Amino acid sequence: MSKRAFTPTFKLEVLKACEDGFYTLSEIMKKYKVSKSAIKDWKYKFDTYGTAGLQESSTCKSYTKELKLSAVRDCLSGQCSINEAVKKYEVSSTSVLR
């Protein structure tokens, strides 16, 4: 499955549509052809990092062995979900942690 690249402007438009409350989340997902998880991810990144969080990174972020082990241990022990670990350890996405 290919990954679609969305512009920061598009992401802001979707987030604004969610914030306005004129449409349900289901309607927004259909209208913009985006998943619920993508919207939640964009919202978290926008709330945490502002508009800079919506930019696609052009470089791969590296993580220490200790950070990766801690994140995986938290997930396996049930201490947090993979989404929570991504936020807690500031990993770029769930696919990186998987």
Results as ranks from 00 to 15, higher is better:
Arg4His: 14
Arg4Met: 12
Ala5Thr: 14
Ala5His: 11
Phe6Cys: 02
Thr7Met: 05
Thr7Lys: 10
Pro8Met: 03
Pro8Trp: 02
Phe10Asn: 04
Lys11Met: 05
Lys11Trp: 01
Glu13Leu: 11
Glu13Phe: 03
Val14Lys: 00
Val14Glu: 00
Leu15Ile: 06
Ala17Trp: 01
Ala17Asp: 08
Glu19Asn: 12
Glu19Phe: 09
Glu19Trp: 05
Asp20Gln: 14
Asp20Met: 12
Asp20Trp: 06
Asp20Asn: 14
Gly21Ser: 11
Phe22Arg: 14
Phe22Ser: 15
Phe22Gly: 15
Tyr23Cys: 09
Tyr23Val: 05
Thr24Tyr: 09
Leu25Ala: 15
Glu27Leu: 10
Ile28Gln: 01
Ile28Asp: 00
Ile28Gly: 00
Ile28Leu: 05
Met29Phe: 06
Met29Arg: 08
Met29Ile: 07
Lys30Ile: 07
Lys30Asp: 09
Lys31Ile: 08
Lys31Pro: 02
Tyr32Lys: 02
Tyr32Val: 02
Lys33Glu: 09
Lys33Asn: 11
Ser35Gln: 09
Ser37Thr: 11
Ile39Tyr: 02
Lys40Trp: 10
Trp42Arg: 01
Trp42Gly: 00
Trp42Met: 02
Trp42Asn: 00
Lys43Pro: 01
Lys45Asn: 11
Thr48His: 13
Thr48Arg: 15
Tyr49Asn: 15
Gly50Ile: 12
Gly50Pro: 07
Gly50Gln: 12
Leu54Asn: 03
